[in-house]
């Protein structure tokens, strides 16, 4: 692990994650852990009191051993990580209740790049409207918009591309497909 300071990486990566969520559509950078950007995010978010579900091929065992979260089902998970963009995960993720809308899932999707489709974003964190490229199609956006239609209930989505760039959609973000 040649002197890798995981806590220091977490500090830096947290800034990227919170900036991305506070300003949906803004691209920030994640520094990798064990050569993986997804594992870096897992290492940042996982701890004793949270649950997760992972669908993918990366070796998450070491991060799990270090951070000690609980593995659970898609329906129960605080964090849902996936190597591919899958609307089923959004459909099944928990979205909180009116008393505790924060008891809801955050989804983290890996993708190759963001250059698939152009979308128009608006909502908190966005100065008016903002055009961004996202790796998801109209069907995905329809599912997400439906999931997040009962605000304050909903989910947050992060996309990480192959070069460690991060982009987020908050539950308050309105997305129009261009």
């Amino acid at each position: 692990m040649n002197n890798m300071d995981l806590e220091q990486l977490n500090r830096q990566n947290f800034k990227s994650l919170s900036d991305a969520l506070a300003m949906p559509g803004k691209i920030t950078k994640i520094k990798s852990v064990f050569d993986s950007h997804l594992l870096a995010v897992a290492n940042l978010l996982f701890f004793n009191e949270v649950t997760y579900y992972y669908s993918g091929d990366e070796d998450i065992t070491l991060i799990e051993a270090i951070t000690n979260p609980k593995i659970t089902t898609i329906q129960e998970a605080d964090y849902i990580l996936s190597d591919v963009i899958d609307t089923r995960l959004i459909l099944e993720a928990k979205k909180g209740d009116y008393l505790n809308p924060d008891f809801s899932a955050t989804l983290i999707f890996k993708c190759e790049d963001f250059n698939s489709y152009s979308h128009l974003l608006s909502g908190p964190g966005i100065d008016g409207k903002k055009e961004v490229n996202l790796p998801c199609n109209k069907k995905f956006i329809d599912v997400l918009m439906k999931k997040n239609s009962d605000y304050p209930l909903g989910v947050e989505i992060f996309f990480i591309n192959s070069i460690g760039e991060l982009i987020a959609l908050s539950r308050t973000t309105k997305v129009e497909v261009r």
Binding site: L45, D102, E156
Partner: peptide
């Protein structure tokens, strides 16, 4: 991590 989790949820809502 717990404070950061609360902070992210706070930003989202």
């Amino acid at each position: 991590k717990e404070i950061r989790r609360a902070t992210l949820k706070a930003i989202a809502i």
